[in-house]
Computed example of a mutant assay.
Amino acid sequence: MIAPGKDEPVRVETIVVPDPGPGEAVVCIQACGVCHTDLHYGQGGISDDFPFLLGHEAAGVVESVGEGVTDVAPGDFVILNWRAVCGTCRACRRGRPWYCFDTHNARQRMTLAATGRELSPALGIGAFAEKTLVASGQCTKVDPSVSPAVAGLLGCGVMAGLGAAINTGNVGRGDSVAVIGCGGVGGAAIAGSHLAGAEKIIAVDIDDRKLATAKELGATHTVNSRESDPVEAIRELTGGFGSDVVIEAVGRPETYKQAFYARDLAGTVVLVGVPTPEMKLELPFLDVFARGGALKSSWYGDCLPSRDFPMLIDLHLQGRLPLDKFVTETIALDEIDKAFERMLYGDVLRSVVVL
């Protein structure tokens, strides 16, 4: 599925996938989630390096590998990721590879069969296709008994939310957590908080449908912020103090301020919603100092795919992490435009393309 130019309709094209070179792998895609980031690519909101090969929340089977690849082999069932750590940058050398500043992608480019024009794969993956070429480090081997439609969601949005709670927010047993914005990422933050043993999980959204789903994912309380002030509601539900951790999964200054004031003294705010370039945030500087605690941003849930993906798949297979609840519908490749529309209207947590 190609985005040929800014705001142009996406379309199915035949592409050429080269044989894998050194450090590369070709993966046969079985399922790929439809993420808001793909829509941003098509709108020109990421870059203008058109045409884009969209899709990145994917799982499939390795078909072939290039010279020097030892971490995966043909026949392995893998989840694709956009954090293939380098092992040598300053973050990796300090033992923090989840912050890797020099992640790998395939060096070769896939091309359009009709014209030979090079494609830009979304997040270095490009998985709305029968096959894609990636760096071998972008492949994380997991238990093949899991549904590909479920597994692929860890490749981006669901991992971002789970990691925002578990990795970035360090949610622990007995904590109180509030999550503002209960789409796919916020819902995953709720599921992650529940998995981590949070005692009170407060879901905040303007859509009662999303709040109902949040309850299924582990929320103990819900707040419709169209009907009541979320800061006051969160404080009332936490003895007047505010939550230990507040996760902002919208990416707007207004909701970030709500998160800032809805946390307890010395509490933690985690921003996992993605702002747009023109947005500005203004806070009283004294309040930043006086309230203490931590203000964090969560990149990809601060995940390390080789560590987190297999563990989370195992938890799902044990019945402890309901990843299947994030799959609202499965669709064909030529239905992606309709899935983008449903996403904008808030009708789905995730549409998943099954190939």
Rank of each mutant, 00 (worst) to 15 (best):
G169Y: 01
A332R: 15
L304V: 03
V78D: 06
G187C: 13
G183K: 07
I166Q: 09
G273E: 06
E254T: 07
R291D: 09
P4R: 03
P148M: 09
C303L: 13
V270E: 00
L217V: 02
F289K: 15
G187F: 01
C32Q: 02
D334T: 01
V179T: 01
T140D: 00
H56E: 04
M343F: 12
H40G: 10
G184Y: 01
V158H: 03
C139W: 08
R263M: 00
K257H: 13
W98A: 15
L333F: 10
Y99M: 13
P74V: 07
V245F: 00
A25W: 00
A214T: 01
D71N: 14
G152H: 05
R11Q: 14
I180V: 12
L211T: 01
A106E: 03
K257N: 07
E341W: 04
S228C: 14
P97Q: 03
S306F: 05
D38Q: 06
L237E: 05
A129W: 01
H316S: 13
C303E: 01
R94C: 07
G197D: 11
A262S: 12
G157Y: 01
V204S: 06
A198V: 05
D102N: 14
S136Y: 05
G126Q: 01
I206T: 09
T70E: 15
V272K: 09
A212E: 13
Y345K: 15
D71A: 15
P148Q: 06
H36W: 03
T111E: 12
D229H: 02
A31M: 03
T37V: 05
V69C: 10
L54M: 08
R209M: 03
V353E: 10
V354Y: 09
T14K: 15
L80N: 01
T115K: 14
K325R: 15
S225Y: 13
E227K: 15
E278P: 05
G161P: 09
H221D: 09
G116H: 12
D71E: 15
